[in-house]
Design a binder for these strands. Structure first.
Length: 467
RNA sequence: GGCGCCUUGGCGGAGCAGUUACGCAGAGGUCUGCAAAACCUCGUAGACGGGUGCAACUCCCGUAGGCGCCUCCA
């Protein structure tokens, strides 16, 4: 399996430290509000990564964290904690807000048919580990204290700028934010922030340096190392994390352990809506509820994610979701053939159902080429809907659907057989057609359509499909 | 100001130096009692201008436009 590695800027073979296990860390959500569709796009892409790894013989150990403290609203450690801000907005405590949106997120993973991560650790459950990491950094001389917290001195980590190819001097010149003048370097970041004197935070902990809370970047390093070891095989997240969050994770982790933090870094590009990135301020933060309210299924959303490559900046619109929904319907029509096998079919051809899984797997093994896998699947669909299924092919056909589902998560196996009543209507319509009672035949077709069942007539009899 | 990316047919969206990506929508046709089904065909796609190749959408240079990051962000 090959993936593009942000670290080396090239596509390379996945080489886990201890195959067949492959450790994967994904930077998860900050649970202060409803995730928008762009967040879900990214997470679905990592679900696909894990599915692809499994299909290609690996045993993924997947950790996705829940950021429930410390994620600051704005710039260089000056801003407010997102959780505390969310709490004020909703008149709750930060703990309540975190619990609510954590539940919402976990529920979303199920609604979207995610592979279950091996661990979904919360930052607030790992304060001890985070303090331990700061201590390690302190012992090695990477930290310093200023009035509002303990900071990491990025000038002590020689290759700080390498990962994101940062030009630190030039950046400084054009920076749009004012940095805390107490900091030694503009890129230095908080490891531990002291609680403010004037009010009590909902979330705060004791530490060797005083009461406060951990900086945002710290949690990922601490939890990744706790669950997956000092060196993780694949570390992943949104492309926006490259210059700051992941750069800082590398700095603090490698400074503490002296080992590479991740062998391969994988980053997903963002989707745009109306050629703009998604931001709450732009009012384009579409949620899963919005998608469903417009009558689109979450499977259609997932299919839409598959239609573009994870490294390209793709566009989202209701039109394109509509297209995905229609495309999904056609795949579901193919899946419905499992209930409608014929004793014999004309020209069964030489189509090899067993090859489908292998082919799809190869597309995904090629840097998650999901658009290629769908193009292939469309060709399969065209052949099968033309040829139909013979009874002794059904087992193979169901296996094929299962393989598609386990790779792409489209729930094609969930397309159920129709009721006996509906089958009788279809049979009745056939009799009407035989009697040339076209009015009755068309009426029955309308009746079936109201039950979301479509019918097409073929030389080997009627075929139904879900509308 | 710095760094990087992108520009493909109505829409979405890939790969590839020379063979149809694919899907959705649309047009024409075939079949059928009819069809909203199915099948076939079609739209003379590659921002623009140069260059290197026998050959470029696919490599190089330039121009125009767009986007992302440098600041919380999937």
């Amino acid at each position: 399996m090959r993936l593009y590695n942000t670290l080396t800027k090239q596509t390379e073979e996945v080489k886990p430290l201890e195959p067949p296990t492959v450790t994967v860390y994904t930077c998860g959500p900050t649970v202060y509000d409803y995730p928008h569709i762009g967040n879900w796009f990214t997470f679905i892409r990592y679900d696909l990564l894990v599915r692809a790894l499994k299909a290609n013989g690996y045993k993924p150990k997947w950790v996705m964290n829940i950021t429930d403290v410390g994620h600051l609203v704005s710039d260089a450690d000056e801003g407010e904690d997102k959780l505390e801000k969310g709490a004020r907005r909703e008149g709750k405590t930060a703990w309540d807000v975190a619990a609510f949106y954590t539940d919402y997120f976990l529920n979303g993973l199920e609604r979207l048919n995610f592979t279950k991560p091996s661990y979904l650790p919360k930052a607030t459950d790992h304060i001890t580990e985070q303090i331990g990491l700061i201590k390690a950094l302190e012992e090695k001389g990477y930290t310093y204290q200023i009035s509002d917290g303990i900071y990491y001195d990025t000038s002590k980590f020689a290759k700080y700028a390498d990962f994101a190819q940062l030009d630190l001097d030039e950046q400084q010149a054009g920076a749009r934010v004012e940095y805390n003048p107490e900091k030694r370097n503009p890129t230095d970041f908080a490891l531990w922030k002291f609680s403010p004197r004037d009010h009590k935070r909902d979330m705060e902990w004791d530490s060797p340096w005083g009461k406060g809370f951990p900086g945002w970047h710290l949690e990922c390093s601490a939890m990744c190392m706790k669950y997956l070891g000092d060196t993780v095989d694949i570390h992943s997240g949104g492309i926006d994390h490259v210059p700051v969050h992941h750069t800082n994770e590398i700095a603090q982790s490698e400074a503490a352990t002296g080992k590479p933090f991740a062998l391969l870094w994988m980053h997903t590009n963002h989707i745009l809506i109306n050629d703009e990135k998604i931001a709450k301020s732009a009012g384009n933060g579409i949620t899963l509820e919005d998608v469903e309210a417009k009558g689109y299924s979450l499977e259609a959303l997932r299919l839409h994610v598959l239609e573009s490559h994870y490294r390209s900046q793709s566009k989202f619109s209701w039109n394109s979701l509509e297209a995905a929904q229609n495309r999904l319907r056609n795949l579901q029509a193919m899946a419905a053939l499992r209930w409608q096998a014929r004793d014999t079919v004309q020209d069964a051809g030489t189509f090899a159902l067993d090859d489908v899984a292998q082919e799809l797997k190869m597309f995904l093994a090629d840097d998650l080429n999901t658009p290629g896998s769908l193009a292939y699947l469309s060709n399969v669909e065209t052949q099968l809907t033309t040829v139909l299924i013979e009874k002794d092919m059904v087992d193979h056909f169901v296996d094929m659907l299962g393989a598609i589902d386990s790779l792409l998560g489209l729930n094609l196996l969930e397309i159920a057989d129709i009721s006996d009543e509906s089958k009788q209507l279809i049979a009745e319509r056939e009799r009407a057609r035989a009697d040339h009672d076209w009015a009755k035949a068309d009426e029955l077709r309308s009746k079936l359509a109201r039950a979301k069942i479509g019918v097409r007539d073929t030389s080997s009899g009627p075929i139904w499909f879900p509308l």
